[in-house]
């Protein structure tokens, strides 16, 4: 039914018809308001995570600022003795970085070859049946709580290491490396497998057509084509290994040390933060602030690595 104003003002009516969506014309007002409220809550909940991230970064920086007022940045980054809680105090973070990278390097020695070979097997050799069985099994590895890994390292791997290599200490970097390697295996395997799968079939066929064997095609064509993405998976695994806390705290010990001997006890950055958090270091003291400085450093390292991985993943093809 035509209303009176429509007759009186056809121009206005046309304008309204063009500029209101069909939805807006047909939907009653209360539904439109309800929609608005729903959208508001959806957006708000997605901003919660952004807000929390910003808050954590703010706290890391503000607490670290207190630390860096007392300790020069150079002494922190390049000092080779870490003894913030015991006199004479010293705040050189290198021993913690050394511990972290010793464990990470050891983990990578295990996870990189095993992970890559598994990925190549899954992607290029395994039948669909095998694949459907193996992939979920591998993913179970990442579902095991890390404290279980730590306990496993301490009570199972370390005794074995001690019988093989008697100099092995109760807490040692080697057993931590082994379990962190197992932990990061699914990351490398799963992401590298995905990377290999993205290589087009036509490229494989082109290689086979030249008289290549499956192994030559897998390693020289498929793996090379997927190399940026495979690299990203390795970087993400390294980032995960650096951030790993529970297993290394349990297995690697709490002795900040500049050593390359993986059978000795070391302390990683994460394990140090645990030590301070559990101990009775009073809030506001420099000992308390050290954990934020170490946390900030850890954050910057893993953020950089994750950023590099993203760059590799979204790099334009050649």
């Amino acid at each position: 039914m035509e209303r009176r104003w429509q007759r009186r003002s056809p121009v206005l009516f046309d304008w309204l018809r063009k500029n209101l969506s069909t939805q807006a014309q047909t939907m009653p007002l209360y539904i439109r308001i309800k929609e608005k409220i729903i959208v508001f809550f959806l957006a708000a909940s997605s901003f919660v995570s952004v807000f929390i991230t910003a808050l954590i970064i703010y706290i890391l920086f503000s607490e670290s600022a207190g630390f860096f007022k007392k300790v020069p940045l150079g002494d922190f980054l390049f000092g080779t003795r870490w003894s913030p809680l015991l006199e004479p105090a010293s705040y050189g973070v290198l021993p913690l970085i050394n511990g972290t990278f010793l464990v990470t390097a050891g983990a990578l020695i295990i996870a990189l070859p095993v992970g890559l070979l598994t990925a190549i097997y899954l992607s290029e050799y395994a039948s669909n049946k095998t694949r459907q069985f193996l992939k979920p099994v591998l993913e179970i590895l990442s579902g095991i709580p890390t404290v279980v890994y730590g306990y496993f390292a301490l009570t199972f791997i370390t005794p074995i290491l001690q019988t093989i290599i008697p100099i092995t200490e109760v807490f040692n970097a080697a057993s931590a490396s082994i379990v962190v390697g197992i932990m990061t295996l699914p990351i490398i395997t799963s992401l590298s497998d995905d990377a290999l799968q993205t290589v087009p079939r036509s490229l494989r066929e082109g290689a086979y057509a030249l008289g290549a064997t499956r192994f030559e095609v897998s390693t020289q064509i498929v793996l090379i084509s997927a190399l940026p993405r495979v690299g990203a998976s390795v970087i993400l695994a390294v980032s995960r290994a650096i951030g790993e806390t529970m297993a290394v705290t349990l297995a690697a010990g709490a002795t900040p040390k500049m050593t390359a001997n993986i059978f000795e006890s070391v302390q990683t950055m994460t394990a140090y933060i645990v030590e301070v958090s559990l101990g009775d270091t009073p809030q506001g003291t420099i000992g308390y602030q050290t954990s934020f400085a170490v946390g900030l450093l850890l954050f910057i390292i893993t953020l950089t690595l994750n950023f590099m991985a993203q760059r590799l993943l979204y790099k334009k093809k050649h």
Binding site: P200, S202, L203, E205, G206, A207, Y208, A209, L210, G211, A212, T213, E216, Q220, I221, I224, S225, H318
Partner: peptide, 29 residues
């Protein structure tokens, strides 16, 4: 397949240099 070559519907050069693309087949064989 060394004796019977194949050219495909979509060009599928390897992500290598032009030079390496030519030599890859003879080399692996």
């Amino acid at each position: 397949r060394r004796k019977i070559g194949m050219v495909f519907q979509k060009p599928n050069p390897f992500p290598k240099t032009i030079y390496e693309n030519i030599l890859w087949g003879p080399k692996i064989n």
